[in-house]
């Protein structure tokens, strides 16, 4: 069982709510993924406030936990204010903290991220930081009060899959008791299986599901891939070796010549 900030969860898949062709397709994908956590955002509302209201009702009807993000924030002050506004709207201390540092790669500004994480943790937020795979930054985020880490495995929406497995492995090895969620860069179910086999606790997806030709079917594929990777990790895998090892016993083999 996965536990994030005291909340026990059966599913190890977190799902974003953006970029689906329609609200109905989003609902289907959430259902077939089995996810218990969806990410949401805040944006300027046009006069009347009805647009946000419709989405708010849809999310509430999904009956899952909500993880608001600070997507699009490029400074500590923007991220902190957006976090406070998200808490006001969604009534949760959970926060996916994003402080973006680079326009093209959407790489986190890890310096701002650590600073914002410290401020928000002190104000009672339970921060899920979207970070890089840098081990030292991971350590600083934990010192700042984070009890969950969400390293990328490749840039957001790139579908490249894990680009630096040794770095992911190092984070896992150094923080064996911290829930680790791979956020961003997953493109295929096999990518998700790979990071789960490394011992990561969960995977956060959006584009890989929303951008599939059949999002609900892909959500189901990912759910199974994540479970398979987790089970393999718990079962204990063989290390690769250079020479063949006969699987059939050699003793008692007939000699014909």
């Amino acid at each position: 069982m996965l536990t994030l900030y005291g909340q026990e969860l059966r599913s190890r898949l977190l799902l974003g709510t953006a970029r689906y062709p329609s609200p109905a397709v989003l609902e289907d994908a959430v259902q077939s993924s089995g996810t218990e956590i969806v990410t949401v955002s805040l944006r300027r509302e046009t006069a009347g406030g009805r647009q946000g209201g419709a989405f708010f009702e849809l999310v509430r009807a999904l009956g899952v936990h909500v993880l608001p993000n600070t997507a699009g924030c490029h400074s500590v002050s923007e991220a902190v204010l957006t976090a406070k506004m998200a808490r006001e709207v969604f009534g949760t201390n959970w926060l996916k903290l994003e402080v973006i540092g680079h326009h093209d790669t959407l790489q986190p500004d890890v310096f701002g991220l650590v600073e914002a994480a410290r401020i928000l943790s002190a104000e009672g937020f339970e921060v899920f930081p979207y970070t890089t795979d840098d081990l030292v930054v991971a350590e600083r985020l934990l010192e700042a009060g984070c009890k969950v880490l969400m390293p990328w495995c490749a840039p957001i929406g790139s579908a490249m899959g894990p680009q630096n497995i040794p770095a992911l492995r190092a984070i896992r090895a150094n923080f064996p008791d911290v829930p680790l969620i791979v956020d961003a860069g997953i493109g295929r179910p096999s990518h998700a299986t790979t990071v789960m086999e490394l011992g990561f606790d969960a995977v956060l997806l959006n584009t890989a599901v929303a951008g599939a030709a059949r999002p609900a079917l892909m959500a189901s594929a990912f759910a199974q891939a994540i479970d398979a990777g987790r089970q393999a990790f718990e079962a204990g895998m063989l290390e690769p070796r250079d020479f063949a090892v006969p699987s059939t016993p050699v003793i008692g083999k007939a000699v014909f010549a």
């Binding site: 990410t39 949401v40 509302e45």
Partner: peptide
């Protein structure tokens, strides 16, 4: 003044 409301997000 900023007035924000829920939006889809990743």
């Amino acid at each position: 003044i900023e007035i924000l409301s829920p939006m889809k997000g990743g």
